[in-house]
Each structure stands twice: as C-alpha cells, then as structure tokens.
Write a protein that binds this DNA or RNA. Structure first.
Length: 113
DNA sequence: GACATGACCCGCG
DNA sequence: CCGCGGGCCATGT
C-alpha cells in the first residue's frame, strides 16, 4: 500500500534543528561548526538533515553556510530562486555580503566551546 | 544488509 | 583557479 503518513524527524535531525535554533539573528554558522557542536564527524550528514528541514524558516537553516562562507543551499536547491531567497532572508537580518557573494566574516557565530 | 545519494570539507596536482 | 578523489555518515531503496 502507498505511504500516507509523513515521516517524523529522527533524533539526529532534532539534534541538528535544536542546535541551529541557538544561532542568533544577524549571525551565521557553518555546516562544519554545527557538526562539531553536536559531535558529528560528517559535515555532509548535517547538510542532509537541513536539506529536508520541514520547519524552514522557523528553524533558521538559512543561517548555515559553507566553511568558505559562501551560501551553500536552501530548500533543496543550490542555486536559483531558492538560494536568492536565502540571501534575502539573511539580508533582512542585517547580514552583509562581500562582492563574491560570501558572507562577511564578522557575522560568523561560533558555538560556545 | 548492500548500494546509492547528498544544502560538505580537504588535500593534491 | 579548477577538477578529482577520499573521507565522513544519515537516509532511502
């Protein structure tokens, strides 16, 4: 029979969503930092959890960018409309960008050690 | 359980 | 600078 019920977040995903929620407005973190904070050695696995985030933008996954501070992805896309939306959300939180599209480093938020 | 996918990262040539 | 390969690991088929 076909699947009708929607899948609930796994514990791992909840861990990720909970961590992101601690990133303040106007700041960004990275997939790598996020992974380190929750004790995950796969940055990619963190990206996977965010890619399917059903609570965006309440759970502010738009505040997570790549280690080189370029945008990364949003709503399952790595470019186009979706990505521009991510940039707009950040702009509205007063995050500033450099000419090459990367986030200005002063907005980087590091989790408490 | 094996195999494939992916919003990542890093080193090397 | 750019592509390629290796590493890491949660999820889905």
């Amino acid at each position: 029979m076909s699947e009708m019920t929607k899948r609930s977040p796994t514990e791992f995903e909840q861990l990720v969503y909970d961590a992101i929620s601690k990133v303040p407005s106007g700041k960004v973190t990275t997939y790598k930092e996020l992974a380190r904070h929750i004790g995950c050695r796969s940055n990619q696995a963190v990206g996977q959890a965010l890619r399917r985030n059903p609570f965006a933008p309440e759970v502010p996954c738009h505040r997570v960018v790549r280690t080189d501070l370029t945008l990364g992805g949003y709503a399952g896309a790595t470019g186009g409309e979706k990505l521009r939306k991510k940039q707009r959300l950040l702009s509205e939180e007063a995050v500033q960008f450099r000419a090459d599209g990367s986030v200005r480093p002063e907005h980087f938020f590091q989790f408490p050690r």
